[in-house]
Computed example of a mutant assay.
Amino acid sequence: MRPALHSTYQAPPAMNQPAEPLVRFTGVQKTYDGEQLVVRALDLDIQRGEFLSLLGPSGSGKTTTLMMLAGFESPTAGDILLDGKQITRTPPHKRNFGMVFQNYALFPHLTVGENVAYPLTVRKVPKAEQAERVKKALDMVRLGGMADRLPARLSGGQQQRVALARALVFNPQLVLMDEPLGALDKQLREHMQIELKELHRQLGVTFVYVTHDQGEALTMSDRVAVFNEGVIQQLADVESLYETPSNRFVAGFVGDSTVLSGTLQGAGADAAIQMPGGFLLPGINVNQAPVGARVQACVRPERIVLHPQSEYPRPNAIPATVARTIYYGDHLRLVCELGHGQEPATVKRALSPLGTSHAQPGDQVLLEFPPAATRIYAV
């Protein structure tokens, strides 16, 4: 008789379990006067190795959130965890975070090398190791050979690289950046955005980046948390944030939108915005506004299709008049009057080949609004 078989099989771990975040905010609040909350009941997970931007207008709570993470501000309520351990009351110098500010915060009387070495000096790293790590950090930000210069002899972009090298030289768990490119001119700022993203890709360090510039956030981030009035309005990857804004604020703050006003007609897949003049445009009822409610539809300018008015009537299209054209170098924007009290519609178009004409002010046109790109929000 055979002995009974005892199974040694063990079920594999559940697939697609979310990884433990590097940082977790749980129910975090912040008030300075005991009455008005600058940050309200913040729940936020920051994943290891990601580039997360905190985006929002002035006073939205994004910088206060960063300062609480850095340890320069203490939450009024709630917890901040690092690797699952409480750091809410841990002082800044014990958090092992690199910090880059808008004003660089370099010591003017110290050389570039001495500025970069400062965090190592504070941590009592041996001189020989300091020299090696400073050289590596300066090479990383393409400032090799400049260790003996004073900050005053450097350009704004070079000073920002020194500040970045100083934030990276001690191998921090997190690099926190507060509007670090705000003082640079447009061309240099765009160049530094590409450099920062590439550096993040090479190092794999977690970056948390505060900005009010939505283009900057979209260019560099893996995910973006959009703040307004102390609350995260949406947290998403950059494509989802741009293509599928979760509410009217995000739709208006992130990227450009043409805004149409009217009332909601139809439910579910039959939702549409009824506009003055009798025009009905199908769309997506994002926040489940009730039938008859005042709504606004937001459509990205590049999704609107321009047709000659001779094609009227056309599904999902309304007549308009080109009011002006704006040349951007790589594309053309047409500002079109819709009438009936509507805001002007902006249409983004690729430039026509040289020698061919494009729409001119005064031209009568048809604007087609694809239903999948017409996102309807309650007002």
Rank of each mutant, 00 (worst) to 15 (best):
residue 118 Y to I: 03
residue 370 P to N: 07
residue 101 F to M: 07
residue 326 I to P: 02
residue 86 Q to D: 09
residue 108 P to F: 14
residue 346 T to C: 07
residue 205 V to D: 00
residue 2 R to N: 15
residue 257 S to P: 00
residue 318 I to F: 00
residue 8 T to G: 04
residue 264 L to A: 02
residue 20 E to F: 14
residue 90 T to M: 14
residue 147 A to Q: 12
residue 202 Q to V: 06
residue 85 K to T: 10
residue 48 R to Y: 14
residue 187 Q to I: 11
residue 58 S to M: 12
residue 16 N to Y: 11
residue 371 P to I: 06
residue 165 A to I: 11
residue 278 G to D: 02
residue 338 L to F: 06
residue 49 G to Q: 06
residue 15 M to L: 11
residue 212 H to Q: 14
residue 79 D to A: 13
residue 152 A to W: 15
residue 55 L to C: 09
residue 213 D to T: 09
residue 328 Y to V: 06
residue 245 P to A: 12
residue 5 L to P: 02
residue 268 G to H: 05
residue 256 D to V: 09
residue 259 V to D: 02
residue 185 D to E: 10
residue 288 Q to P: 03
residue 325 T to E: 14
residue 134 V to Y: 00
residue 260 L to K: 00
residue 261 S to A: 14
residue 159 Q to Y: 11
residue 368 E to S: 00
residue 256 D to S: 12
residue 337 E to I: 05
residue 332 L to F: 10
residue 355 G to V: 13
residue 243 E to H: 11
residue 254 V to N: 01
residue 374 T to Q: 01
residue 192 M to G: 03
residue 207 F to G: 04
residue 214 Q to R: 08
residue 239 E to I: 13
residue 334 L to T: 04
residue 88 T to L: 01
residue 314 R to D: 00
residue 51 F to M: 09
residue 341 G to E: 14
residue 185 D to H: 09
residue 311 E to A: 06
residue 207 F to T: 06
residue 158 Q to T: 13
residue 244 T to K: 09
residue 310 S to H: 02
residue 209 Y to A: 07
residue 140 M to L: 15
residue 152 A to G: 13
residue 205 V to L: 09
residue 217 A to C: 08
residue 330 D to P: 04
residue 1 M to A: 15
residue 285 N to A: 10
residue 34 G to Y: 12
residue 183 A to S: 12
residue 129 E to K: 15
residue 371 P to L: 10
residue 267 A to Q: 12
residue 66 L to W: 09
residue 333 R to S: 15
residue 79 D to I: 12
residue 282 P to W: 02
residue 89 R to Y: 10
residue 339 G to M: 10
residue 253 F to D: 02
residue 122 V to W: 11
residue 329 G to C: 13
residue 130 Q to F: 06
residue 5 L to K: 10
residue 326 I to G: 10
residue 301 P to R: 08
